[in-house]
Design a protein around this nucleic acid. Structure first.
Length: 235
DNA sequence: AGCCAGGCTACCG
DNA sequence: CGGTAGCATGGC
């Protein structure tokens, strides 16, 4: 990416926001109801509200969701999250008290349930040890099951840290637009976005969510649909 | 039926 | 370092 494209990523952001509007990430369960029926795919999003999470429980829910949705559709991840809520396990201490087999059964609909069960237990211990402090990126990455994207998702959405989240969709879209190479590393893509964008948490939160929304519409599988940002004038 | 989903670890050369 | 097999259920 050359220097005269400096504003390109900002222009794409504004275009996506114009197309789809605020996305209201990260989706949270409905904590007022008895049943976690109003979850992300229904009413869990909160467009325009950038103040969540507003307590430790909601923060922990985002942490769990970040693990559960790894390489998995959110609709599947939130089924597991609903199971965890019914088990009162959206709480690190209570999650760790659950029998592993019970936990596995709850995680099952999110796929990879054997490893994700272990990951949830690891991140729960880590969360307890934090005792309310904000983790560093390096600390998060030492937790088994937390890689680059999960760490950045947790930092950005649960802790409001200005860490840009890169996912498979991000690479897919922006390599298709000719901005990066397909094999560009995670950190290179992340650094590119953080270099080009103002260091703004709501913007980072919104941009990643908009990328996912756009990708779901046009980049699910090849050949990609013909309506692309490439066709849209940016300058 | 087959491909994909808001990745990560372990292991390979 | 970069590249990839394995992990698993559910939706379309």
């Amino acid at each position: 990416m050359s220097h005269h494209d400096e504003h390109y990523l900002t222009n794409v952001y504004h275009k996506l926001l114009e197309l789809y509007g605020p996305q209201g990430w990260w989706p949270l369960l409905d904590w007022n109801g008895e049943n976690p029926t109003k979850t992300g795919s229904l009413m869990g999003y909160h467009p325009g509200n950038y103040r969540l999470p507003e307590n430790s429980q909601q923060r922990f829910e985002i942490v769990l969701g970040a693990i559960l949705t790894q390489n998995t559709a959110w609709t599947s991840a939130e089924k597991a999250l609903g199971n965890l809520k019914r088990l009162k396990a959206v709480d690190p201490h209570l999650l760790l008290q659950l029998d592993s087999e019970v936990l596995k059964a709850a995680v099952r609909p999110a796929g990879f349930f054997n490893q994700k069960t272990v990951y949830l237990q690891k991140i729960s211990r880590f969360f307890i040890k934090l005792d309310g402090e904000v983790p560093t990126r390096k600390e998060l990455l030492k937790v088994k099951g937390v890689g680059n994207e999960t760490a950045d998702s947790i930092l950005l959405y649960a802790y409001h840290q200005p860490q840009f989240v890169v996912d498979a969709y991000t690479k897919r879209i922006f390599s298709h637009l000719g901005i990066i190479e397909q094999n560009t590393s995670y950190m290179e893509v992340k650094n590119l976005f953080e270099r080009c964008l103002p260091r703004d948490v709501p913007l980072y939160q919104e941009y990643h969510a908009l990328i996912v929304e756009h990708a779901k519409r046009y980049y699910q599988k090849q050949p990609y649909k013909e309506i692309h940002l490439k066709k849209i004038k940016f300058n």
